[in-house]
């Protein structure tokens, strides 16, 4: 089968899943019991007092709660999603949800994206090295070392970093995305300030990030180095390094590519733990705040973003896989 057909099929599959995700995102909140407007009023007013219908109506108008039957709402919702209109945030009124996400997204994408990519590259290289020198001292140090680091609780590591490098040594700021002296924009002061603030969270992410990739890569590669075609490559007198790369790592990396794509997609959801510990103004903290203040439009939009991120990343992984592994392009017989 021509590769084009493979890619077309993956794309159609992607569109189908995307539609299902968007629809579920619409349906699930509407299947939940209770009225958000009443909930807000009763929270504002306190449990004891009775609810004034006029107040509820006012809130409804303010929030733009939809009317019409479920199908009309669905059509409206699809149109709004296509325009990137997710309504107004309850907690950050009068800012729109889109605005809030636009504020938080760059922080997360840069911090988590960069550390994820570095983790993947470093992890894959270390895993390859460990497998290449299997059962040597290098292998023991890498494998045991990463297993040990992997058992440490992430938040504890992060707090330790804050305590040592921010509070005791005062090398880096302890919290936030940028200091009070600078304001966001393309100027040197802000960029260097933001970089200073991102060092500690980045280090925390980089300590634990590569572990999964190391273990996965090492184990896959040890297996692919034991395959018949690898032994035959050795018997053919191919240089050891060539065997390790083309016959070992080339095949071992395949499952990790999928894992990496999913991890990249998950970035949009933010890294709640690290953003909370460092009080970092990203998507994770936004999500946490929206959940604790029951900001439904914001929550819903963040969930949708995360889903779309994972789907897009998966789709890209499929495309990449089509190039990396010729076997998946094979036609599926009916």
């Amino acid at each position: 089968m021509a590769p084009v057909a493979y890619f077309v099929r993956r794309f159609l599959f992607f569109l189908g899943t995307l539609w299902a995700a968007v629809t579920l995102n619409f349906l699930i909140p509407r299947l939940q019991p209770g009225d958000p407007a009443e909930a807000i009023v009763s929270r504002l007013a306190g449990q004891s007092e009775s609810i004034d219908p006029a107040q509820v109506q006012a809130i409804r108008v303010m929030l733009g709660t939809p009317d019409g039957n479920l199908f009309d709402q669905y059509v409206q919702y699809l149109g709004a999603v296509l325009h990137g209109d997710f309504g107004i945030s309850y907690t950050y009124f009068p800012y729109s949800v889109t605005h809030m996400i636009g504020q938080a997204l760059p922080w997360t994408v840069i911090l988590v994206g960069v550390t994820q990519i570095i983790s993947f590259v470093v992890g894959t290289l270390l895993g390859t090295w460990a497998a290449y020198r299997r059962n040597s001292r290098v292998d023991s140090v890498i494998t045991l070392g990463s297993t040990f680091l992997g058992t440490l609780p992430f938040f504890w590591l992060a707090l330790l970093l804050v305590y040592v490098f921010a509070i005791t040594l005062r090398w880096f700021p302890e919290r936030g995305g940028y200091g009070g002296g600078s304001s966001p924009g393309w100027n040197w002061l802000f960029i260097s300030d933001a970089f200073q603030h991102s060092v500690l969270p980045a280090v925390a992410l980089l300590i634990t990030g590569p572990i999964g990739w190391i273990i996965g890569m090492r184990n896959n590669m040890v297996q692919s180095l034991g395959e018949d075609h690898t032994r035959l490559a050795v018997a053919r007198g191919l240089p050891r390094r060539r065997v390790a790369i083309t016959y070992g790592a080339r095949i071992a990396i395949l499952p990790n590519v999928t894992g990496f794509a999913i991890a990249l997609g998950g970035i949009l959801g933010g890294t709640v733990l690290v953003e909370t510990v460092f009080n970092y103004p990203g998507m994770g903290r936004l999500l946490l705040e929206s959940v604790s203040s029951r900001d439904y439009p914001l929550m819903q939009a963040i969930f949708l973003f995360t889903t779309i991120g994972v789907l897009v990343a998966n789709f890209l992984a499929d495309l990449l896989y089509g190039f990396l592994d010729p076997r998946v392009r094979k036609v599926e017989s009916v």
């Binding site: 395959e227 075609h229 095949i251 010729p326």
Partner: peptide, 8 residues
């Protein structure tokens, strides 16, 4: 069936 490298 496994003595050739499947990805090249």
């Amino acid at each position: 069936m496994n003595s050739l490298n499947p990805v090249i």
